[in-house]
Amino acid sequence: MFEARLVQSAILKKVLDAIKDLLTEATFECSDSGIQVQAMDNAHVSLVSLNLRSDGFDKYRCDRNLSMGMSIASMTKILRCAGAEDTVTLRAVDNPENIMFIFESPNKEKLAEYEMKLINMDQEHLGIIKTKETSYSCVVKMPSQEFSRICRDLSQFGESITFACSKEGIKFSASGDFGQATVKLAQTADADKEEEAVLVTMQEPVKLTFSCRYLNCFVKAGPLCAQVQLSMSNDVPLVCEYKIGDIGHIRYYLAPKIDD
């Protein structure tokens, strides 16, 4: 028996919004410690890692480890049926063929149950073995809305954005046929609110170029968290991380573009 309950179904809606442009289907690995998804996009250029800890749920029970293949589009359709204030419960039996989504209104007067067929995902199991923490040359924390805005604005100029980070701050630039754009963000000396701060932790400066197409998928996670963390080192994938309240995080890994 697997059962996971979240008082705020809105969190799950936002999680789906954050992955639906990159993944068509994904395996949700459920265990005693929580729910995990690790999947690459179709082009194998980016990787999504979603982690929802069991202690972050309002109720969580997982008697046996389960791997449930789900269509992200179908899941999105079902979550659209949840009211903004509804509670959501995910439920499945051991060796399930279906998963149930149960939505309950705050006054408990409405109870809706949706059943979704699971997909047989016989595709490769990623088996990511990376457990050691990489030490990054630069780690930037900045407001997620600002990051979304910069990615959107600079995408108008070209297909990629260059991130140049030094101890003063981070510079984003793009260029294309009709001109070029640069946005510099200085490290905030004393931001009034933590969520408005720009913080740079630097070992050595980095300069990396990334595809706008993927960045614009990652920023869909913006509504999950006021701050985004960008971890960068030369010649390794960017890690773009959004915390999901007290329950977990979503991390996107994107390989930089290299001039051959």
């Binding site: 250029v45 990787l47 990511i128 990376k130 595809s211 390794v236 994107l254 390989a255 930089p256 573009k257």
Partner: peptide
């Protein structure tokens, strides 16, 4: 593609 190789080398080092 090079980007793909970087990602694969990062996650699945030999």
């Amino acid at each position: 593609r090079t980007s793909q190789k970087i990602l694969e080398r990062y996650f699945w080092p030999d």
